[in-house]
Simulated scan of single mutants.
Amino acid sequence: MNFPERFSNLPAYAFPRLRALLDHYEPGGEVVHMTIGEPKHAFPGWVTDVIVENSAGFQGYPNNDGSDELRGAITDWIERRYGVTLDPGTSVMALNGTREGLYNAAMALCPEQKNGQKPIVLCPNPFYQVYMVASLSVGAEPHFVPATAATGHLPDYAGLPEDVLNRTAVAYICSPANPQGAVASRDYWAELIRLAEQYDFRIFADECYSEIYRNDAPTGVLTVAQELGADPERITLFNSLSKRSNLAGLRSGLIAGGPETIKRVKQLRAYSGAPLPAPLQAAAATVWADEAHVRENRALYQEKYAIADEVFAGVQGYMPPEAGFFLWLPVDDGEATALKLWQETGVRVLPGAYLAQGEPGQNPGKGYIRAAMVAPKTELRRGLITLRDCIYR
C-alpha cells in the first residue's frame, strides 16, 4: 500500500519528542510542568451557566459559520480592540479553535501556482507547527525565515531574495510571537503589508496571544491595514478564547478577512469543518462580549512577568517577554538542558529546537528552552528559581 510522501519528512511533534527525551528517566525532584502553553487561570464561572441554559442546542446540528449572536460578538470585539468595523455576515466566521482555521485557510486560499511556479509559504522560525503542515498539505513549499535576536525575534520577510518573494503566496506571522513573546510594531506591520502588496501575497496573522501583555496592547494587523487602506482580502486575522479567556477546551476561535476570503473559507468548511456546538457558541458569544475577566487574567500574567524578571535579574541573555506567557531562555543546548533539568530537578521545559526547523547548526531554537508561565504563582516562582540555579549558577 502506498502512502503520500508530502508528510514523510515531518519530524515527530514537539510533545511526543519531549516524552521520548525525558520519560525514560525519573524526575530529580518535585515535578513542575512548564512545557505546554495550557492556561491554568480560572475561566469565568458563568460560562457553564450559559452552556446549561442553552443545552437544548446539543440536539441539533450547529451553524457552521457561527450563530448570528456569536459573529456579532466577534465583530463587536474587533471594533473595540482594533477600531475596525466588519460586517458580521460577510467578514468573520467562527472556528473550532484557531489551529483548524490556520490550516483550512491555506487549503481555501493558497493557489496551486504563483507566477507559474510552485508557491512558497513563509513561516517564522521558530513557529507554530500547523503553519508547516498546512503548507505541505496544499503542495506549497514552506520557507522558514529565522526569527532571532538579530531580527528582534520576528522574521525579516523584507530581507528575502526576490526569487523567493516572487513565489510567495502566503506569509504566516505570529504576534505576539510564540515562543519569544516579541510584538510586531505598527512599522513592522506596515512594512509587511506593503511587501505583500508589492509581491502579491496574503498575510495570515495569528494574534492568539494579543490580550496577554505587559503594558500597552499590541498593535493588530487590521488596525494598520485600515490606516494604510490595504485590500481587505490581503489580510486574514486569527484569534481565539483559549489564551484570552482561559478556555482552551471550549475550542472557540475566529477568522476575519475580506468578504471573498471568508466566502471561500466558509465554502471549504461547509464540506470539511467541525463547527462549534450551539451551546458552546452561546457561551463564546458571552465571553467575547466581556472584558472584565480579560483584565483580571492579564493582571495575573503581569504579576508573573514581575516574578520572572526578579528571578532572572542579572542572567545574561534573559529577554523579558513583551507579551504572551512563555519565557524563551538562552542555553548552550536546549535538548541537553531540558534533560539535565528533568533529571536533576524535576522541572519540565521544552527544547527550543522542537519548535523550529533546520539542521543542528542552523536550527534557531537549538540554543533555547521554552518555559510556560502557566502554573500558580507560588509554584511558578519555585520552578523558575530551581531552573535558574540549575542552569545559570
Rank of each mutant, 00 (worst) to 15 (best):
V265L: 11
A177G: 14
P360L: 08
Y199V: 15
A106H: 05
I262E: 06
A278H: 03
F325K: 07
Y209D: 09
E191P: 14
N9W: 00
K366S: 09
P320S: 12
P277Y: 01
A158H: 13
E310Y: 03
P376A: 14
P364E: 05
Y157A: 14
A177E: 08
S210L: 12
A12T: 05
G257N: 09
K40M: 13
Y128S: 10
D68N: 11
I193A: 10
V265P: 08
G258R: 07
N239S: 11
E227M: 13
C174T: 10
A182E: 10
A56L: 06
A134R: 00
Q343I: 00
Q59W: 04
G152F: 06
L237M: 09
P364D: 06
R167L: 03
Y103H: 06
P88I: 09
A283L: 08
L280T: 03
L280M: 09
L254E: 06
R269T: 06
P179T: 06
V224D: 07
T85N: 12
I369L: 11
E335I: 02
A292H: 12
Y213F: 15
P279F: 04
W328N: 10
L95N: 04
L222Y: 05
L380I: 13
A313P: 07
L136A: 03
A184T: 12
A182D: 10
A196G: 14
A282T: 04
L268M: 11
E141V: 00
C208K: 01
G159S: 07
P364G: 09
L10E: 04
N246T: 13
E322F: 10
Q129W: 00
A140N: 00
N104L: 10
A289E: 06
H153W: 09
Q281A: 09
L241M: 11
A14H: 00
R167T: 03
I255E: 02
L329P: 13
P364W: 01
T261W: 07
P320W: 11
